[in-house]
């Protein structure tokens, strides 16, 4: 390394002579940071999304590579959030990539003390059977005066408010058609 290169390597020299007098940008950059590439630059794609926490509805850009989420950032185009995210929105990459997430169906038999494994298809089938049985056991055709009721009070549901509109639509449509009336949501709470 020549003397000149050595001196030019000093951040203070670059700060005094370069375009970054406050030393917050190029002047402060090390060789190592000059070599780094942002995950956002190498992503396969970016999905325009929305923060899943509160109802402000901050815009998110979800960067992904090889089928995995690599970064989530605020969307600077959003007129709501102008690119900002709060601590929760900023942590949403940790949320979706968390190793604590359950990715397998878990099943607890009556009176059991531990979880068991269960195939998703089998679980779906078992749940369908239980719905039909509960419905048959508790079905009410008419009230005391013969007026229609068409319902079961043997089934309840409580949904969160991070469900999509499309999901809520199908939930309400299916439960209504099966006569399940006791369908509730965080919106009541």
């Amino acid at each position: 390394m020549g003397l000149k290169t050595f001196i030019q390597g000093w951040p203070v020299y670059r700060q005094l002579t370069g375009t970054d007098p406050l030393g917050r940008g190029a002047a402060a950059q090390s060789a190592r940071s000059a070599e780094l590439t942002a995950r956002t630059e190498t992503a396969d794609g970016v999905a325009r999304s929305v923060c899943p926490y509160c109802a402000v509805g901050c815009g998110q850009r979800v960067f992904h590579k090889d089928g995995r989420v690599t970064q989530i950032e605020g969307d600077p185009d959003s007129p709501i959030s102008r690119g900002r995210l709060c601590p929760k929105g900023s942590a949403s990459k940790s949320l979706v990539t968390s190793p604590l997430r359950q990715t397998k169906v878990r099943y607890r038999r009556p009176y059991a003390t531990e979880w068991e494994d269960l195939d998703l298809d089998v679980a779906l089938d078992m749940i369908a059977d239980r719905i039909l049985a509960a419905r048959d056991e508790t079905w009410e055709d008419v009230d005391d005066e013969g007026r229609p009721l068409n319902r079961t009070l043997g089934i309840s549901s409580l949904g969160g408010a991070t469900l999509d509109n499309e999901e809520n639509y199908l939930i309400k449509k299916l439960f209504t058609a099966m006569g399940a009336l006791q369908i509730e949501n965080q919106a009541r709470i």
């Binding site: 408010a161 639509y169 309400k172």
Partner: peptide
């Protein structure tokens, strides 16, 4: 200031016992 990402949607397309969409 509602508290959840789509709680307004959950009321408009309700999963509530007393309402339909």
């Amino acid at each position: 200031l509602r508290g959840h990402a789509s709680i307004q949607g959950s009321t408009d397309i309700p999963t509530l016992f007393n309402l339909l969409p």
